[in-house]
């Protein structure tokens, strides 16, 4: 086991992990932040998406040790207390989720999309979601939610 420190959602956590521990396992099993989910083992589904230094990444494809000295943000760190992040609110408003399993990764990706494309159109959102699989929604309402959430984030900026 190796002692490492992870900065997650603005707090510093000293933990012991095996070197081979994936970031998503450190988040879920050690820090008990279970919002990031594991939906595949080939880096395709995106359910584990979190932000490292402000960029969306797949936390199943990064070792916990690689994320030392970075700022990690997870779905749990998105809302400010009881106030939802505009992207979270947009997913609820537009019924952008059903079973909810892909949702944390979807929302973290959506926030990243909005950061890079403040007013994304339908085609941009669909292309940007290439790395996030959903089996429930057919993406129809997710796309609407991302567009609306991005607009709401613009309004706040």
């Amino acid at each position: 086991m190796t002692a490492i420190t992870l900065n997650v959602n603005g707090a510093s956590h000293a933990i012991d992990v095996e070197d081979r521990t994936l970031l998503v396992h450190a988040l879920r099993d050690t820090l008990r932040l279970t919002g990031a989910h594991i939906g595949c083992d080939t880096s395709q589904c995106g359910a584990c998406t979190v932000h490292i230094d402000g960029r969306a990444v797949k936390s199943c494809t990064v070792l916990a040790a690689q994320a030392v000295d970075s700022e990690i943000r997870t779905i749990e760190g998105l809302a400010k207390g009881a106030d939802l992040h505009p992207m979270q609110a947009a997913f609820r408003e537009h019924h952008g989720l059903q079973c909810g399993f892909c949702t944390p990764g979807m929302i973290m990706m959506a926030v990243d999309i909005a950061r890079r494309h403040p007013r994304p159109d339908d085609a941009t959102v669909r292309a940007e979601l290439e790395g996030n699989l959903c089996r429930c929604t057919g993406y129809h309402n997710i796309v609407k939610a991302v567009i609306a959430g991005a607009a709401a984030m613009e309004g706040l900026a």
């Binding site: 879920r28 099993d29 008990r32 932040l33 279970t34 919002g35 990031a36 989910h37 594991i38 997870t74 779905i75 749990e76 998105l78 809302a79 939802l84 979270q88 997913f91 609820r92 408003e93 019924h95 989720l97 909810g100 399993f101 949702t103 944390p104 929302i107």
Partner: peptide, 21 residues
């Protein structure tokens, strides 16, 4: 009607079996 279950699922507070230790 907007869904009641969403508030936990969009905040990472869903509880799936693998979340349980």
């Amino acid at each position: 009607v907007k869904r009641v279950e969403d508030s936990r699922l969009i905040t990472g507070n869903g509880r799936y079996v693998d979340d349980l230790l």
